[in-house]
C-alpha cells in the first residue's frame, strides 16, 4: 500500500526584529504517516505550524531537518525526481478566488497539468478534462470547461482546484483549509467530495483545518499542533471524545456546538452571580 510519511520534520524561519536576528521554529519534530485511502487532519490555531507542514509536504518549503518518505523512499528534491513526486502529491489551497488565474478558462487550468505531467496529449486532452470535471461533480463538463473563474461560485472554484490537483494522477492531496473561505452551506459538499474521492480513488488526504468538528467527521486520524509541536495525535474519535492533552481540551471547550445553545450566556450569568454574592 502506498504511503506518504513524514519523520521528525523541523522548520526554522529566519526572523528579524529591528536589528536583532533570530530563528523561529515553526515546526518542531512532527511525524505521521498518511496512507492511501485515508485522511489525516492536522488541527491547530494560526501560528501552530500546520500550514508549514503542508507546504513542506508539497515541497513549497524545504524542511530544516527530518525526512519525507514516499512509499518508504526519501523523496527527490530536484529535476525528474521532483517531477515524479509532484505527480503523486498535489496541493489544494485555501483561497479558490486567488488560486485560479482569472484570465484563463477552466479548461486551461486542467489541460496544463495534464500536458506537463504527460498524462494526456493531443486528442486525449479534452476527454481527460471532461473526466476530471465529472469526477468533481461539475456536470455538464463542456459548460464548465469554458467558464472563467469569476463565472463560478466559491464552491465550484474549489472543485476546479481539486480537479487540477488530481490531473497529474495524484495519489495524495494536501488540502490547506480547503473550505474555510467558502460559504457555510457549501462546505460540507466540498468535504464530502474529498471523502468520496478518498474512498473511490483510494486517495490519501491531508486535511489542514482549524475546525475540529469536520476534522473529526471527515478524517481517520487527527494531529493536534500547538506552536510547532504535536501535542496529541490519534484516531479521530479518540482525540475528540477522549482528549488527553490540556490544549486539546481547551480547543474543544472553545469550539461552538449548536447542541449547547445558550451555554456561554448561562456560564457568564452564573459567573457574575457568583461574583456578586
Amino acid at each position: 500500500m502506498s504511503t506518504l510519511e513524514v519523520r521528525h520534520l523541523v522548520k526554522d524561519f529566519r526572523v528579524r526584529d529591528g536589528l536583532r536576528r533570530g530563528t523561529l521554529r515553526a515546526v518542531d519534530d512532527v511525524s505521521f504517516t498518511l496512507a492511501a485511502g485515508r485522511t489525516v487532519a492536522v488541527v491547530g490555531e494560526s501560528g501552530s505550524g500546520k500550514s508549514t507542514v503542508a507546504r513542506m509536504i508539497a515541497q513549497l518549503e524545504t524542511p530544516t531537518a527530518g525526512e519525507i518518505l514516499l512509499d518508504g523512499e526519501p523523496i527527490g528534491r530536484r529535476g525528474r525526481a521532483l517531477a515524479r513526486y509532484r505527480n503523486q502529491v498535489q496541493m489544494v489551497f485555501q483561497d479558490p478566488f486567488a488560486s485560479l488565474n482569472p484570465y484563463h478558462p477552466v479548461s486551461y487550468h486542467l489541460e496544463r497539468p495534464l500536458r506537463i505531467h504527460g498524462v494526456a496529449r493531443g486528442k486525449e486532452v479534452t476527454p481527460a478534462v471532461h473526466r476530471l470535471l465529472r469526477s468533481v461533480e461539475l456536470d455538464p463538463p463542456e459548460v464548465f470547461a469554458a467558464k472563467r473563474p469569476h463565472e463560478m461560485s466559491g464552491g465550484q472554484r474549489q472543485r476546479i482546484a481539486i480537479a487540477r490537483a488530481l490531473a497529474p494522477g495524484a495519489r495524495f492531496l494536501v488540502a490547506d483549509e480547503p473550505v474555510s473561505m467558502l460559504d457555510v452551506s457549501i462546505r460540507l459538499g466540498v468535504l464530502s467530495l474529498l471523502a468520496r474521492l478518498q474512498r473511490e480513488e483510494n486517495l490519501g488526504v491531508l486535511y489542514i483545518t482549524h475546525d475540529l468538528a469536520t476534522a473529526r467527521h471527515f478524517s481517520d486520524e487527527i494531529v493536534v499542533m500547538l506552536r510547532g509541536d504535536v501535542v496529541e495525535q490519534g484516531p479521530s474519535d479518540q482525540v475528540i471524545l477522549d482528549p488527553q492533552h490540556d490544549y486539546t481540551k481547551t480547543l474543544l471547550a472553545a469550539a461552538p456546538d449548536p447542541s449547547r445553545h445558550g451555554r456561554l450566556r448561562d456560564e457568564v450569568r452564573a459567573e457574575l452571580a457568583a461574583q456578586a454574592s
Partner: peptide, 26 residues
Amino acid sequence: LYAEPQHEYTQQLLSSFPSLLGEFSY
C-alpha cells in the same frame, strides 16, 4: 430556532455544521 427550525433554509444552515461530539453522516 435550534429545536424546531421551520424554514427550509434554516434547516439547511443548521445541517451545515456537524456536531462536534454527536454522530454525523453526510
